[in-house]
Write a protein that binds this DNA or RNA. Sequence first.
DNA 1: CATTACGTTTACGTTAACGTAAAGCATGAT
DNA 2: ATCATGCTTTACGTTAACGTAAACGTAATG
Lengths: 135, 135
Amino acid sequence: MKKTYSISDLADEFDITTRTIRFYEEKGYLSPKRDGTRRIYSPPDRTSLRLILRGKRLGLSLDETAELIRMYGSAQGNRQQLEKFIVRIGEKRAELERKQRDLAVMLSDLKNVEDQCQLALAEYGNSMNNTSEIS
Amino acid sequence: MKKTYSISDLADEFDITTRTIRFYEEKGYLSPKRDGTRRIYSPPDRTSLRLILRGKRLGLSLDETAELIRMYGSAQGNRQQLEKFIVRIGEKRAELERKQRDLAVMLSDLKNVEDQCQLALAEYGNSMNNTSEIS
DNA sequence: CATTACGTTTACGTTAACGTAAAGCATGAT
DNA sequence: ATCATGCTTTACGTTAACGTAAACGTAATG
């Protein structure tokens, strides 16, 4: 049950073009196997792609996302390296947590606007009811 | 107490260049008053800039952010317009909520890596203690 | 009064992240 | 056999969001 995917399988699944997938490979963010000349994607390849697209949705650059993906892979090294690594993780987390706060504020603002709209709509509903009662 | 800001006041405060601020104006996302030829920014101008930068951090395009800013301003119009508007708000909210989920997953993944690192570091700490006890 | 600091406009340059098109190979269906 | 389908490489084009530089105005300061 070693499932594999063609390039358009993935393109369809993630709603992107094959050009995009080839571009990611060209830049070194994907390295699928080949069947002759054709690209064969494994489940890990698929996961990498998903992570890339997730980062993209959050406004990370491909390089930033690639760094995160590398981070997921390995928590190894000597003490010095580990300590530096933890600092780096902390920076990334701070960045993501700021995005989280930004998002919370935007969603709250948006909800306020939505409530205002609903109120205005309710007014329309009332006048409609009134006029329909009058007529 | 009608506070105003120069272009470099805002550039310093938000840690961007004056070029960036002029670019936003050139594209119609800001419209400061003028003192002769010099740009004078009001608190609302400053707020607009903050909203733009917030959107940018979340990976929104300037146009998308501008649409959000327009949304904040006005919940008016006839019933048809209000209904369309609410649908549009719902779409935006869905998009932002997806970002929220993406962020939660990334932060969780990052925390796992961090924990692994801490564990590895603790190992180093133990062997250090051991060797120091031995020596 | 020359320098320093801050502002202005105009305009060409740059980078990331793809889009688009051309030209060709392989394979299964009609 | 040829037609459609799906894959390939190569390569030039495009857009957003600024960077960078030139050339200039103005106002305070040593």
